[in-house]
Amino acid sequence: MRIVFLNSLEKKDGGAMIRGAQVWIGEEEGVWRMGWNELLADGQTEDLWYEGASWSEMLHIYRHRLAAKLGEGFRPVMEDIWDEKEGLTRRGMAAQKLFCYSELNGNEPVYNELTAWRRKKASAERKAPYLIASNRLLRMISVFLPQTADELLQLPGVGENKAGEYGAELLEITKAVERKRTFPLDWVEQEIDGEVFRTWLYKQKEVKYRAEMEKFSIRRAALEALAEGLKVEDICTRTGIERRDAVELLENLEKEGYNTDDLVSAELVEMPEAEQQAVWLAYEELGDALLKPVLHKVYGTEAAEGGSLDTLYERLRLIRIRYRRHRESARHAG
């Protein structure tokens, strides 16, 4: 096997190395292999991270697995194997330090009170809780305890609109709690140990790259199902995603240029032709940006409120795939 990449890492405790490791990538007759060798007191262990023909898949796994190791405290002997500041501006790095500090120094009683407030507010406004405030924002508010609107606006994720809409209620909670540190929050940078912050950043990358890797795997499974002539239910079985998400994935694949026509035809085989034509004409009249007007046009408001609403929407989206492909072909032909 031809090694095309190799780097050494080490894990230290108090400045002394306690464990060494190597991450490597090799190739042999079109097959990529990637692994992690760890040097232990009683010998060496080898963990094969990937073996296959896909360079893209291997890179997704590499980023995720390496981020996990860096999050455990391993550091590269050769620098620049990973830049933890990648893509971050100075302002962005300052925000990350606020996130880090608040997560490592939690104030659970206030955080729980804030999440209870958010839950009631979301129910009253019929919104998803994250649209009101993210967990990360509530965590920061619970730790830094802003006492004024100006202080609240100094937290990343709080803009004028959010402060105007929810600021008074948030401050009512935080003002009732005694705080030990004040604003501005420039003291945070001095409070965070540099190595602790690096480890925290790597753990954030691990979460990010895990999500990207899972998304890549789902996309690959969907493409394989298309090539095999399978249906939506088969995609759901292979990937574990819901039908709604599978149809959305098909829409995105169609936009990328993949042909989903066989699968769409198989899914619509039980839908009467006249009904399909009515949906098509509704798209021509109303456009394809919104599904609800088309639903009401074809089925009426009463029928659209029945128990088969998910099925109706799925069929509308499948026909929209065809409609958009037809419209794009006509545009290029013209």
Results as ranks from 00 to 15, higher is better:
1 M>P: 15
3 I>S: 12
4 V>Y: 08
4 V>A: 06
5 F>P: 06
6 L>F: 10
6 L>M: 11
9 L>C: 06
16 A>W: 05
16 A>P: 01
17 M>P: 11
24 W>F: 15
26 G>A: 15
28 E>I: 09
29 E>T: 05
30 G>R: 05
33 R>W: 10
35 G>H: 09
38 E>W: 00
38 E>G: 03
38 E>T: 11
39 L>K: 15
39 L>D: 15
41 A>K: 08
44 Q>Y: 10
45 T>S: 14
48 L>Y: 05
54 S>Y: 06
57 E>T: 12
58 M>V: 09
58 M>A: 15
62 Y>H: 14
62 Y>I: 02
63 R>T: 11
64 H>L: 10
65 R>H: 04
70 L>K: 09
79 E>C: 02
80 D>L: 12
84 E>K: 08
84 E>Q: 10
86 E>L: 13
91 R>E: 12
92 G>C: 07
93 M>C: 04
96 Q>G: 07
98 L>W: 03
100 C>Q: 10
101 Y>M: 08
102 S>N: 03
105 N>H: 15
106 G>P: 08
111 Y>S: 02
118 R>F: 01
122 A>N: 06
125 E>G: 01
129 P>S: 06
130 Y>D: 11
132 I>F: 00
132 I>H: 01
133 A>G: 05
141 I>Q: 00
146 P>R: 03
149 A>Y: 04
156 P>H: 06
160 E>Q: 14
165 E>I: 02
170 L>I: 09
171 L>W: 00
176 A>Q: 14
177 V>D: 02
186 D>C: 00
187 W>I: 07
197 F>V: 10
199 T>N: 12
200 W>M: 11
202 Y>T: 06
205 K>D: 15
208 K>S: 12
214 E>C: 01
215 K>Q: 14
216 F>I: 01
223 L>H: 05
224 E>P: 02
226 L>M: 05
226 L>Q: 04
227 A>M: 07
228 E>I: 06
232 V>L: 13
239 T>G: 04
241 I>W: 03
242 E>R: 14
247 V>P: 02
250 L>T: 02
254 E>G: 09
255 K>D: 09
259 N>I: 13
260 T>H: 02
263 L>N: 05
265 S>N: 14
269 V>N: 07
275 E>D: 12
275 E>H: 02
285 E>W: 00
298 V>F: 11
299 Y>I: 06
300 G>D: 08
300 G>K: 08
302 E>D: 14
312 L>S: 08
315 R>A: 05
315 R>P: 07
316 L>K: 04
320 R>D: 01
321 I>S: 03
323 Y>Q: 03
332 H>D: 07
